[in-house]
Amino acid sequence: MAILLDENIKVIVQGITGKQGTFHAKSMIGYGTKVVAGVTPGKGGQEHLGVPVFDSMKEAVEATQATASIIFIPARFTYSAAMEAIDAGINLLTVITEGVPVQDSARIRQKALDNDVVMVGPNCPGLITPEASKIGIIPGKICAKGNVGIVSRSGTLTYEIIQNLTVNGFGQSTCVGLGGDPIKGIGFNECLTLFENDPQTKQIILVGEIGGTGEQQAADLVKKEITKPVYAFIAGQTAPPGKQMGHAGAIIHGKSGTAKEKMRILSEAGITTVKTSSEIPLRIKENL
C-alpha cells in the first residue's frame, strides 16, 4: 500500500521538453515512475526521453490512459495547463511551479474539487512512494521503503527530514510535499486521513511552517480521528512575528500564530513536537 501513488500509476509530464521538465522527467523515469507521455504544444509527434510527446493533454490521455499529470511550466501558463489536465480527465494533478498567482491557484483548486481531482501544490516538491514511484522532484536516493508517512508544507526541509529518517533506519510509506503557497490543493488533513487508513503507515510526521492555520486544523483532526502516533516539526521558530493579512483574516480564522503557539496546540492534541529536524528519529526510537 502507501497513499496516493503506487508503481502502476501512469504519469504525463506537462512541459517535458523544457529544462526543468527534461531534467526531472528523466529522474522520475530513472526512479521507476511510469512516465508514459509528455505534452508540449507544437511538439506533438516527437519523442523525448524515450516517451511520446503530444500537443495536448487530451491526446496524451487518450493515447496512454494516464491518470496523473505533473506540471513543469512557467507560472504565467500554469493556470491553463492545470485546467487542461483536469479537462482531459486525469485524477492526480501535481503542480511543481513556483510563483503561481493565488487567484489562479484558487481557480485550479476549485475546479479540482468539483471534478474529484487530487491536486498537490503549487510550489511543491511533489510526492514519492519509495521503491515504487515518484511524481515530482524529491531526490529518490535519500528515501527508503518503510512505514513512516510524511506530510509537509516545505520542500527542501522535507528532504532534510527524510534523510535523517533513512539514515536512522526509518523508511517511508509515502512522502507528500503540499507546497508553501497560501492557497493550495490537498492539505495536512486529507493526508493525515489517508495515512490513518493506510496499513503500511505506522507513524506520521507533519512538517509545518509559520503562517496559515493548517497546523491548528491538523491538531483538531488528530485529537478526534487519528490513532497512529504523529510527530511534528514547525519551521520559523525564531522568525520575527509574522504580519497578519490585515484585520479581515484575523476575524475569519483567528490569529495564525507563531511557531511556538502552533507547537503548543499540536502538543495539546497529543502530537510529539520537536525543535530540530534531527530530533525526529530519536523521538520515534524512544516511542517504539
Binding site: 516545505s154 526541509l157 508553501g180 519551521a235 520559523g236 525564531t238 530540530t276
Partner: peptide
C-alpha cells in the same frame, strides 16, 4: 538556503546552537 522551509529551519538551528541569523 534553497527553500523557504529550510531557510527558516537554518535560522532556527543557528539560534538553537546559541548564535543568530543575519537574514532569511
Amino acid at each position: 538556503a534553497g527553500g523557504a522551509g529550510l531557510s527558516m529551519a537554518t535560522c532556527d538551528l543557528l539560534e538553537f546552537f546559541g548564535s543568530s541569523p543575519a537574514n532569511f
